[in-house]
């Protein structure tokens, strides 16, 4: 079972690679769009890679609520726990 630290860490790592930034520059409170500068296409591609990494499918309804790095981590943790 993947623990909390791993999920958040992996998501931050994915984002850091995407953004070509150091992982310390990607924090849970950062908004994907307004703080990290991801456009809607980039967010969709990021979530695609997260689906792949954690073996999930994120529905369109759930997608709308994923605004920050922390939102994504909490969502993935919740799905993995259920």
């Amino acid at each position: 079972m993947t623990d909390t630290v791993d999920v958040t860490g992996r998501i931050r790592q994915e984002l850091a690679v995407w953004l070509r930034r150091d992982v310390v520059e990607v924090q849970p409170e950062h908004a994907l769009r307004d703080d990290l500068g991801l456009d809607s296409m980039a967010i969709i591609e990021l979530l695609y890679s997260i689906e792949d990494a954690f073996g999930l499918q994120i529905s369109d309804e759930d997608l709308a609520g994923l605004m920050t790095v922390g939102d994504v981590a909490a969502y993935v943790e919740g799905r993995l726990a259920s």
């Binding site: 296409m41 591609e45 695609y48 689906e51």
Partner: peptide, 10 residues
């Protein structure tokens, strides 16, 4: 179908 990459069409 959901594993098709979103970058496929563009």
């Amino acid at each position: 179908p959901h594993r098709v990459h979103p970058g496929f069409i563009p």
